[in-house]
Design a protein around this nucleic acid. Structure first.
Length: 291
DNA sequence: CGAGGTACCTGACAGC
DNA sequence: TGCTGTCAGGTACCTC
């Protein structure tokens, strides 16, 4: 997924469906997806009868707080997304029982399925099988290095302009790369970094040391704006991401830069350009966003 | 320490 | 039609 708005959309969708539900059983055709514990049989045994007490998000991680102080962590990586509903096994493939958005082709790569105590299922569809799932004591998760090192949550009230500047200070690289660093700010990926930089009129390759106060302020506001809009619209779905009910998010109508190479800038009419650095594509308007 | 590459996977799509 | 190369919302790990 999916970045912060998509993860948040998933969390909200699941909260309205599976809170207080208990895990009955689990199936997978890709057992490697479970990173903790290492043995799938152990995962299956330990998860059984655990009740979902809370579902929340930290950066792009989804966390199910379970009974007995356990947690189930899901990171959807590039193409994973969690779905809720009813499926039946048909010639080796899980098919939705009811007609509707779950039939979307993006929802058919089911590699992990949980049976819940209300007879419904929670599944993970993941074309590229990059997603990861971990089951452990909540304390162990919260105290893990990967978790503790995550940067601040950009949509939290305490993410002030001062805190934003403080977070950026840790780095010296190109601004886009810094924005996508989960340990600087948690939750921003390729789409929303491109979008925020477009709104703030900042070139993605600009070194953060060269940003003046005014640019920093614009960027700070742009980040909050695009992420909030993303959440409000239920995320971006032009590619694989789908909401827990299988339907698409609506952020696509707001996309100004990402994947718009060669198309007109909505602000000045110049052609959006694509460049590649640090292994990712950056999209920007060469006229509005100058180095 | 930072920068860059690779690995993990599969499917869609463009070009020949 | 079919083959080949490129690309994809992420992140961990390795080397230089």
């Amino acid at each position: 997924m999916p970045e912060l708005p998509e993860v948040e959309t998933t969390v909200r969708g699941l909260n309205s469906k599976v809170l207080e539900r208990t895990f009955v059983d689990v199936w997978s055709d890709w057992e490697k997806i479970i990173k903790k514990p290492k043995e799938f049989s152990q995962f299956k045994k330990e998860l059984k009868d655990k009740k979902i007490k809370r579902i929340w998000r930290r950066g792009k991680n989804i966390i199910f707080d379970l009974s007995d102080d356990y947690s189930l962590l899901v990171h959807q990586k590039m193409t994973g997304h969690l779905l809720y509903g009813d499926w039946k096994l048909e010639s080796g493939m899980w098919k939705p029982k009811i007609k509707g958005p779950l039939e979307d082709p993006q929802n058919k790569f089911i590699h992990l399925l949980f049976w819940l105590d209300n007879g419904k299922m929670l599944t993970l569809s993941d074309l590229r099988k990059f997603a990861k799932v971990e089951f452990q004591k909540t304390k162990e998760l919260l105290e893990s290095k990967e978790f503790k090192i995550l940067g601040p949550e950009p949509l939290e009230k305490d993410f002030t302009f001062e805190k934003f500047k403080e977070a950026l200070k840790k780095k010296k690289e190109k601004i886009k790369q810094v924005l996508m660093d989960q340990n600087v700010i948690a939750g921003i990926g390729n789409i929303y970094s491109n979008e925020a930089l477009w709104h703030a009129k900042i070139h993605p390759e600009k070194n953060i040391a060269k940003l003046n106060e005014k640019e920093l302020k614009l960027l700070y506001q742009a980040i909050k704006k695009v992420l909030e809009l993303g959440v409000k619209l239920g995320g971006e779905s032009f590619s694989d991401y789908r909401k827990p009910d299988g339907s698409k998010g609506d952020f696509d109508t707001e996309r100004k830069a990402y994947k718009r190479e060669g198309q007109k800038c909505h602000r000045c009419g110049a052609k959006i350009k694509r460049i590649k650095f640090s292994g990712r594509s950056a999209f920007f308007c060469p006229n509005c966003q100058k180095l």
